[in-house]
Write a protein that binds this DNA or RNA. Structure first.
Lengths: 326, 326
DNA sequence: GCTGAATTTGCAAACGTTTGCAAATTTGAA
DNA sequence: TTCAAATTTGCAAACGTTTGCAAATTCAGC
């Protein structure tokens, strides 16, 4: 059996409430008895029983996180930054994968709730995900997607503005014909990016081309890219929904006999670690992932403190990392 | 306040022990009262309070996992497979990152222990990690690294055999001069792979070249590869410790003016998802990650049932995925 | 050494469950 | 309808903590 507070109490011949208080540093003065208790606690190898502790304090030191898929670099990188910051604050992060499935997303929610987490950070499956998190009284943050739901805080980058900037950038680089490649299944981010693209194009009086990929996974944007590149005039610059999709887009460009970064410029979003590899070398736009994670955790903690606080939406700035593709 | 078993008891006018039993299906016969209790539980929106439950049953439905870095695809992919299987069995997985730091690794251990996890799956930082997990009485599994510690189960691939096979393969493809590129910081896996390589070369009476990279991260194997390729005779086949390292090795090959997959063949280990991208297209060796994860979880559960069971070491088979580089 | 204030202490209840025990109820067969 | 066996029920204790309260102790200043 593991050693409890009572064991220490017995050894030191005090009540166990005293041990509890000393261990929690609630006695402000230093006295010999304190030291003795602390010493025997260490000697006996006492480890606080968090479960019992939580039962009475109702405090939780774990934050739930719901993401589509940890094995996808985009999510694992953000997960890492959430974990780093949360751990630094003394919190653990419990991760659930949804595999892009709404049913699993709500199962994840339930499972997290019975763990009585301090709050849940969600990277939602789709535009309807918010329905799953209605009328929950646990602190909730959407990360990377905005939401109309007024009890859910969120943190996102300014997709519209960033894409306008990216469009300007490509125009500045001499592109004449630009296309945006999104994903078929609509989501806020893709729509916002498209909107930014369209807006910038309109301001420049240019005709905007828009395409969409069936899926983000590998052959995803290949066919659509080939289709776009055989049009006249053919696009000489592409803004792609995200890095992952850009991988297959680039493949499409190559298979049409064009050189990425020379005949066709490519800019996308996320700045995955692998996008920096020379073999890929994507020009890509991303907010600071550290900031994203930090803000998300802070929002949880804030709402934990003041559950009735006004809903907070944080827009973090993004920056473009210029590499070979654009 | 959230609804408890007592609330249900009050509504149904039974003792709360009865509610508890009905909810846990301990009453074998179906009667109207059962259904009524179940119904009101649902109506009231009762969610079992896992914390309280665990306090008395001492059962835990969470498995701890300690890995160097979730944002690294190798770890995130294995993490995913552990999670998938664990969730399927009704377990949650609590992940801690060590950032390749022994101190953080032992902090992760402590933090997981106070959460009273059912067991801990460890992908160790280095060869000395086992010291951190000595004399723990929680089920422990090393994943991807063997260990001498006799109370720690482990699951690994057969590194020696797989690398022998890979070496044979490259010889069969006509390579005359082969080199193995490992990492400076020694670990079991790298040593075993090197040993397999050396053994196979010896069997063929060929001279074996061995190099080592400072780090796995990007420029990691670049310099060493250039060094090796300027030797005479220059290697025309490379076996690289892992995919991540292979990325920079390939860069080195290209910068020497050789074509990967034609002038110099490359085989590595892990089969990261991105290694399948056409831009990378690595020939690579890996065990089934699903199997790895499944076995690790099963080992935890087994030892949880019989803590005194004999130590079990599982060797899973691996297969080579042939792509453009070799 | 005395006094009042400040601090520490022990007691007991609480957190939301599960569970052994003995009593009560239901069941099925005669 | 009756009886024994099978099942369900309620009670109370337990799990390892924290915490409000009142009593006891320590402290500082005189």
């Amino acid at each position: 059996m593991s050693v409890t507070i009572k064991d220490i109490a017995k050894v030191c011949d005090v009540s166990y409430s005293t041990v509890s208080r000393v261990l929690n540093g609630k006695n402000v003065r230093q006295n010999a008895k304190n030291d003795w208790i602390l010493a025997t606690a260490k000697a006996l190898g006492y480890k606080p029983h968090n479960i019992a502790r939580q039962l009475v304090t109702k405090e939780s030191d774990t934050i739930g996180m719901i993401i589509p898929d940890v094995s996808n670099p985009h999510y694992s990188e953000i997960t890492k930054s959430v974990q780093d910051y949360a751990n630094w604050l003394g919190y653990q992060v419990l991760i659930s994968n949804t595999d892009w499935d709404l049913v699993k997303e709500s199962a994840a929610r339930d499972s997290l709730l019975t763990k009585n987490v301090a709050g849940i950070i969600v990277m939602p499956v789709c535009d309807r995900s918010h329905l799953i998190f209605r009328s929950l009284d646990v602190p909730l943050v959407f990360l990377g997607t905005r939401t109309e739901e007024k009890h859910i805080d969120y943190v996102v980058m300014d997709n519209v503005q960033a894409t306008m900037d990216a469009t300007e950038y490509l125009i500045g680089r001499g592109c004449q014909t630009l296309a945006y490649i999104g994903r078929k299944i609509s989501n806020y981010s893709s729509r916002d990016r498209m909107e930014g693209f369209l807006r910038a194009m309109k301001e420049h009086g240019l005709r905007a081309i828009v395409g969409s990929a069936d899926s983000l996974e590998f052959p995803g944007g290949y066919a659509e890219t080939k289709r776009l590149l055989t049009q006249v005039p053919r696009p000489d610059g592409l803004i792609v929904f995200n890095d992952q999709l850009a991988f297959s887009v680039m493949e499409g460009i190559i298979s049409c006999g064009y050189a990425v970064g020379r005949d066709v410029l490519v800019v996308s979003f996320d700045d995955l670690q692998i996008s920096a590899l020379p073999q890929i070398s994507l020009t890509t736009i991303t907010p600071s992932k550290e900031e994203l994670g930090r803000v998300a955790v802070d929002l949880i903690l804030r709402r934990q403190k003041e559950p009735e606080a006004e809903r907070k939406a944080v827009i973090v700035s993004s920056k473009m990392v210029k590499r070979a593709t654009g």
